[in-house]
Write a protein that binds this DNA or RNA. Structure first.
Lengths: 137, 137
DNA sequence: CTAATGTCTGTAGTTGATACAGGCTCAAGG
DNA sequence: CCTTGAGCCTGTATCAACTACAGACATTAG
């Protein structure tokens, strides 16, 4: 038994506790989103509750579409809580604008696409409204 | 004068005619989206109208969010026009479903994000609704 | 004891480009 | 004729955000 702490988690345990992919955990460590965890004498990573909480935070943020760069910023604000709320609000609002812009883009695409598809005869002919539209006809 | 055809275009001409980035043209050739163009005796790429049309097709398709893989498929249908319309319709409809799903995802994100931001006090306090939400509080 | 499961590292592949380095070529102006 | 600037060539590196694999070692359950 190399584990030192009572609640020590292996990599696979952290993955299961969070639903995060195994390799992604290591990736987050190399890019500095997650800290380098303590190691057992044999070099195995040893996690605890703080890692679970942090990784869940990261995953929730990713789920909301924050980039790792943005998450790095949010984590910095969490780690060093001074003037937090106003700053977080700024980041989140900027991200919200991004999301709205993406929705607008996709809605334009949806409109063009469904209009074009609607003009399809759908039969086995070589004429096709979609192709014509893409060809600029 | 190495140019052979009257309407021969250089790489920069094709880029300007289509609005496509210079390097992207070469990229599309290496991945097989655009054909390897004929070369002048000195090895310079020599394009013509067919390349302009094909590249514009690709760019319109990208603009509508088709992946290069999907575009490869569409181009194949354009190049070999048999039973085209039904097949194109299938590809376009599948893509449309993708787009709708992405919109739904982003709208969920938008909802969560704006609800959360609305709970922000926005002041210089260390308590923050966004952080609390991300922490799962 | 053995088989299954897990861990470690480094590295490559994914998508869709974009950028740069180092060297060659070409056309126009002086 | 020479220079300058624009353009061309190739190969390779970079970006985000992962994911996967190879090859070797460790641990655990039956």
């Amino acid at each position: 038994m190399d584990n030192i702490g009572v609640n020590a988690l292996r990599r696979v345990d952290l993955a299961r506790a969070t639903g995060c992919n195994l390799e992604t955990i290591r990736y987050y460590e190399t890019v500095g989103i997650m800290p380098d965890p303590p190691r057992t004498p044999k070099g195995y990573r040893s996690y605890d509750d703080t890692h679970v909480r942090r990784l869940k935070f990261v995953m929730r943020s990713r789920d909301l579409g924050f980039s790792l760069e943005e998450i790095r910023g949010l984590l910095g604000l969490v780690d060093d809580r001074t003037q937090t709320c106003a700053q977080v609000q700024t980041v989140a609002e900027a991200h919200l604008e991004d999301v709205k812009a993406k929705i607008a883009d996709l809605e334009r695409i949806e409109r063009v696409l469904s209009e074009t598809v609607a003009r399809c005869t759908g039969d086995a002919a070589p004429e096709c409204a979609v192709i014509d539209a893409l060809l600029g006809a």
